[in-house]
Design a binder for these strands. Structure first.
Lengths: 337, 337
DNA sequence: CGCGGGGCTTGCAACGTTGCAAGTGGTGCT
DNA sequence: AGCACCACTTGCAACGTTGCAAGCCCCGCG
């Protein structure tokens, strides 16, 4: 139903090629011709066919952002940042959600530019590791986010998880807390985030001369509110409950907070709480959440820049870019102010 | 770099067409030929070119979900539901975010299937109204979500906002509250949600013999936590503050909750709170949030079904499908249990 | 031995666009 | 008058795929 170049050409009495020249603003078109063609374009409501254009040009102007879960605020907020960065460069971002399903992740990433119509991929894997990604048949550029992959031979952006976890834990130590628990450890080989943060947590305890106690390190399957709530209930059931908890993300912390408050305990007086991610929810909870804030804008910016450079043909060796983070102190550790 | 049908054909010593037949599992291929071609396919790691395929077939298998904001939990949760429904039908969903910017909305929706490469659109407009959408040049099917559009001549799914708001307000009335405020009214002609919910709110008050007081109806620019927090601060500054608040979405309610608690007041003892959307955050706040829960799965299901029917050539008149909702009573109105 | 038919394979064209290089007609210069 | 050149326009081919219909070969039957 929509008009094609040929139909416009017939109406304007010129060749298809000339219409194309007008559409693409080529300079070498006589003003009069241009006007006539433009009129025909308008009358027919011509819109270029993006699929044909992409086939011909080899570029779609689309980059895909592949994330485990969109209803996790951290990813939703990151998405906004990526969209903004990409828009500035004239690219449109489409988002896809994998649920951390290895099958879906593989599908999306391995197929690459042929099966999909994206010029590049920004991918935060949950299930897929370095080995899986090493020999992609596709040549679509990919930038990885997150901790999952170590040496996949792909561009990669991550924050220093060990360092950040250490900062968070040290903050609790400096407040005088001694029984500091951790929620979010993951024994699962494929989930690296939890292990790295546990490492930082333990390092901080050791540096303070505190001994990491196994019963205070609670593993969780996911990083959702429900997991935090359940883990916190376990901690409260201990004979000697903790006086502080470092949660490996803000959702865990919010779940834990809910459990603590519903047990009639106070935060931070009885138990201090630190989260990770700095999602908006944590700024509006009561008490508001002390947290590690990864620089999401910077992550997005690096990711898009790196990807666009690859699209421009840059073949330098894969980069491993660190992103900044900072500790944001709020009520859940220092109380009202 | 990736292999094409022709390269595979040369390697296998058959025609391009035969390779295509194998790739598409056509029955009329001799087993031996099929095996030989398959080997060549595997050796070259062939992946069909989705762009070429789409151009030829006229279908991409992609539907776009166009939303105002992804970092608003309601939309993130809705997205999950849409993705699930579409996946069941073999479609892939890509998500795009407009920020409610009329320019971006128009771009995405008016251009339709030519500028983009999507078979259909599920669109929740914020800025664009019926008039804007009526004469789209494109023939891509569109299903609208939300309250914004009334008679755009397009398929449309929404819940009964007036009725839902009435139910929420009546719940507060039945708890014995008398000074019931509302947060989220919008005078802006283009934002219809707020006006509809105010209508239901007033209807419930009238039915209970209570007079709606202008100073208890607080408009907000957006539906974010910050707006709720600010509006609640205004309400608390009144000489005679409310004893209950109906917030037009859960984020507003969470912002309001934060303000109430930080003023040393209790929920629900001093002020009862009802939200709208039933986002996960509200289940884990303290107190948990009483809210109107729109059936998101049903909305997604209707949207995808309707869209797919249009893609199959259904030309029946535009449908206006209602979606269910229910009041979920939690602690913010009835206290701990 | 010739012919019809079935199983399998193929060539051609087209989806709508753009790169390339050639083509057209007119103008100005010698 | 002839030629070169310029401004502008055009045809051809190709991106990689698939629908269509024709083609090939071999088998079995008369």
């Amino acid at each position: 139903m929509p008009a094609t170049l040929r139909e416009v050409a017939e109406r304007a009495g010129v060749s298809v090629r000339t219409v194309s020249n007008v559409v693409n603003d080529f300079p070498q078109v006589a003003p009069e011709t241009r006007a006539r063609v433009q009129r025909a374009l308008d009358e027919l409501g011509y819109q270029p066919n993006a699929v044909a254009r992409t086939l011909r040009r080899g570029r779609s102007g689309l980059i895909a952002l592949v994330l485990p879960e969109l209803d996790v605020p951290y990813f939703a907020e990151l998405t906004r940042a990526v969209i903004e960065q990409a828009a500035a460069a004239g690219y449109t971002v489409v988002v896809d959600q994998t649920d951390g399903d290895p099958v879906r992740e593989r599908e999306l990433v391995m197929r690459g530019n042929r099966a999909a119509m994206f010029d590049g991929l920004i991918f935060n894997p949950l299930a897929l590791g370095g080995a899986d990604l090493r020999d992609r048949p596709s040549s679509t550029p990919v930038v990885l986010l997150g901790e999952r992959v170590v040496q996949g031979g792909l561009d990669h952006i991550m924050i220093d998880n060990v360092g950040a976890a250490e900062v968070a834990t040290r903050h609790l130590v400096e407040l005088g807390r001694r029984r500091i628990a951790a929620i979010g450890d993951q024994s699962d080989e494929s989930r690296r985030t939890g292990r790295l943060r546990t490492e930082g947590y333990q390092a901080a305890l050791n540096a303070a001369g505190l001994e990491p106690l196994p019963e205070l390190i609670r593993p969780t399957t996911y990083f959702h509110r429900a997991d935090g709530a359940a883990a916190m209930a376990d901690l409260l059931a201990l004979p000697d409950p903790p006086d502080a908890v470092f949660c490996y993300n803000d959702l865990l912390a919010l779940g834990a907070l809910r459990t603590i408050l519903s047990h009639g305990l106070r935060v931070p007086e009885d138990i201090a709480l630190v989260g990770f991610d700095d999602i908006e929810d944590g700024r509006y909870s009561t008490p508001s959440l002390t947290t590690i804030s990864p620089n999401k804008t910077q992550i997005a910016q690096h990711a898009v820049e790196l990807l666009l450079r690859r699209l421009d043909g840059d073949t330098s060796p894969p980069a491993e870019l660190p992103a900044d983070y900072e500790l944001i102190v709020r009520e859940s550790t220092t109380g009202k102010h």
